[in-house]
């Protein structure tokens, strides 16, 4: 008797779930609140981009897009949650170069299936890094002079980073391997302490995200030698690119939107189109550019190709530089 009642109950629940699934067809999507998981703390870059896009999606699709911060373990905790959530388009999340291209190599184990990965929706923005040096510690006006200078004193000079395995650290390793120089890596917890010590001259140089570093450059506290994007950065138009000295040198910090693996392609497609349209809006372009960010916006397939390329590139750097795996 009890069992029978339970069976009826289960059948009814299943029916409700089934209708719920049907309702998630692409043309009706979204019919309820969508959660946007940000695997980093509130107030950071990823959070900012996530909120900007979520707010616009909210307006365009007529449903609430709520940002949920799940920070920890270099983004792995939030992405683990995203991977485990129902692939119905009602949970999507932000990812970055660290969490979705570097961690694949850096971490021995991840709380989600590396092979399955995620369904990429669209790249949102990419932040170039800029190589800054303390002018008292390093007498160099450009990258060629810097390399020549560092070659005369191998191992004597230091570069700061926001932590082992961050894009800022790996940019330094990339420089060391490509230019064949020896520099000592000094990791910090986060980039603000790091840039502070470069400004003060305790550490000689670092690659830093452009918005904060550009302010220090403009105030003459540090000297900018090169930017790590393939094109010059709008915030520092006079600074040449690394690629002009070391061909192919690219190390940007990018941020994109992802869905759990197995999300219906129609929904991913729909979201991707919306995100691209949002980023193409002049107001959004202006907002992002003022922050020193290059707005991107691309299709799911383009984004996937980009991620594969990035993952392979950073895997090579991690191996070449012997970065210990976590």
């Amino acid at each position: 008797m009890k069992l029978k009642r339970f069976m009826t109950f289960a059948a009814v629940t299943a029916a409700i779930c089934a209708t719920g699934l049907q309702a998630s067809h692409a043309q009706d999507y979204p019919t309820k609140t969508v959660t946007v998981v940000v695997p980093f703390a509130a107030g950071g870059n990823t959070d900012t981009f996530g909120r900007l896009v979520a707010e616009e999606l909210d307006k365009r699709l007529g449903q609430r897009f709520i940002v949920e911060n799940k920070p920890g373990a270099g983004g792995n905790i939030g992405l683990g949650d995203l991977a485990r959530s129902k692939p119905d388009g009602y949970t999507i999340g932000m990812g970055t170069v660290s969490s979705n291209a570097i961690n694949q190599t850096l971490y021995k184990t991840l709380p989600y299936d590396k092979e399955k990965g995620f369904a990429p929706i669209s790249l949102i923005a990419s932040l170039p890094n800029v190589l800054v040096v303390n002018p008292d510690k390093i007498k160099a006006n450009n990258v060629e002079e810097l390399i020549a200078f560092l070659k005369t004193e191998p191992g004597k000079h230091t570069y700061a980073s926001s932590g082992v395995g961050t894009s800022i650290h790996l940019a330094g390793e990339l420089l060391a391997t490509k230019a064949g120089i020896k520099i000592t890596h000094v990791p910090y917890k986060g980039s603000s302490q790091a840039i502070l010590d470069v400004v003060a001259g305790h550490v000689d140089m670092m690659f830093d995200n452009i918005p904060t570093a550009a302010q220090q450059v403009k105030a003459g506290k540090v000297k900018a030698l090169a930017v790590t994007s393939l094109e010059k950065a709008a915030l520092l138009p006079d600074v040449p690119t690394m690629a002009s000295v070391i061909p192919g040198f690219e190390a940007t910090s990018w941020h994109g939107l992802f869905a759990p693996p197995g999300t219906p392609p129609e929904i991913v497609e729909k979201l991707s189109k919306e995100v691209q349209a949002i980023i193409a809006e002049p107001a959004m372009q202006e907002k992002l550019k003022a922050m020193g960010v290059t707005p991107v916006g691309n299709t799911s397939a383009e984004f996937q190709t980009f991620i594969d390329k990035e993952t392979a590139k950073w895997a090579d750097v991690i191996k070449a530089a012997n970065v210990p795996l976590q």
């Binding site: 107030g43 904060t212 302010q215 220090q216 105030a219 907002k287 922050m291």
Partner: peptide, 15 residues
């Protein structure tokens, strides 16, 4: 606070 300033379009810096 810095995050909030950046969202407001002010990049904090020495200037």
């Amino acid at each position: 606070m810095v995050g909030a300033m950046i969202i407001q379009g002010i990049t904090p810096g020495p200037n």
